[in-house]
């Protein structure tokens, strides 16, 4: 039994306060009409279904329960998500799951630019394709893309792991293709299952950091000369 909250009748502030005050239960958010910051800051095990498309930062900093957007999502869907699940049945605009620290973000359609930017542990599964600069400076977590990836995938990536089934237009600085090991095949399988998507893990390729940008290169000619041939270098 879900409680209906109609954004044509109540304010965003009222909606979010109800969600912040609730300990449990289901909520249907009606008439979102592209509103921003819908269902952001949820801390308890709620099930929120949004009937239509949302604007920026839906389910921002999500911590528990599930938010499903039955429509498209604007920029910053589930930004900085900590745990729980956020899903959009349509497409997501730029910076989906940006800086996410945990939990699962599922995008049934395509995601725009910078999907998974600075991700810090979140798992992201995209049914369609992602735009350019996906997983820019991605630190930790997994990004699974069933479609294609745009230019400069994984630029300046740290320890996040990227799996793409389709074409990658180009890889960004320090991002390289890596071998699909058994544990990677298993991980993709688990993520697809969690996202309720069907694909063969063997069709995916893995990308990650070459770790060449982790440290500055510092020369030291003076020490080399002082120590002579056979010195520390």
């Amino acid at each position: 039994m879900s409680t209906a909250i109609d954004l044509a009748e109540v304010s965003l502030r009222q909606l979010n306060q109800v969600l912040h005050d609730a300990d449990s239960g289901g909520f249907d958010v009606l008439n979102p009409r592209g509103a921003h910051a819908v269902a952001c800051g949820i801390t308890t095990d709620l099930t929120v279904e949004v009937a239509g498309s949302v604007g920026y930062y839906c389910a921002g900093m999500h911590q528990a329960g599930t938010v499903v957007v039955n429509g498209n999502s604007g920029p910053g869907l589930a930004e900085n998500i900590m745990s729980g699940t956020v899903r959009t049945t349509g497409n997501a605009s730029m910076s989906a799951a940006a800086t996410g620290c945990g939990g699962l973000v599922v995008i049934d359609g395509d995601a725009g630019a910078r999907c998974g930017i600075s991700m810090k542990g979140v798992d992201i599964v995209v049914g369609g394709s992602i735009g350019h600069m996906g997983a820019f400076m991605a630190q930790a977590g997994n990004l699974v893309v069933l479609g294609d990836a745009g230019a400069d995938l994984g630029d300046s990536i740290y320890e996040a792991i990227l799996y793409v089934r389709g074409e990658v237009e180009s890889l960004g600085s320090d991002c390289v293709e890596k071998e699909m090991r058994p544990e990677n095949l298993a991980a993709v399988g688990h993520l697809l299952e969690a996202a309720d998507m069907t694909a063969s893990p063997a069709d995916f390729r893995r990308y990650g950091s070459e770790r060449r940008l982790y440290s500055f290169h510092v020369d030291d000619i003076d020490t080399e000369l002082a120590e002579g041939p056979g010195g520390t270098r």
Binding site: C40, G60, G76, E79, M94, A98, Y214
Partner: peptide, 28 residues
């Protein structure tokens, strides 16, 4: 590692976006 952090916010790019970001933070 030699950490060099981002110079731009990852999920907003201008004053109009910032206005929405501030609303989100206030809501949270």
């Amino acid at each position: 590692i030699d950490q060099r952090s981002a110079c731009r916010h990852p999920d907003w790019t201008g004053p109009d976006d910032l206005a929405i970001k501030i609303i989100e933070l206030r809501e949270i």
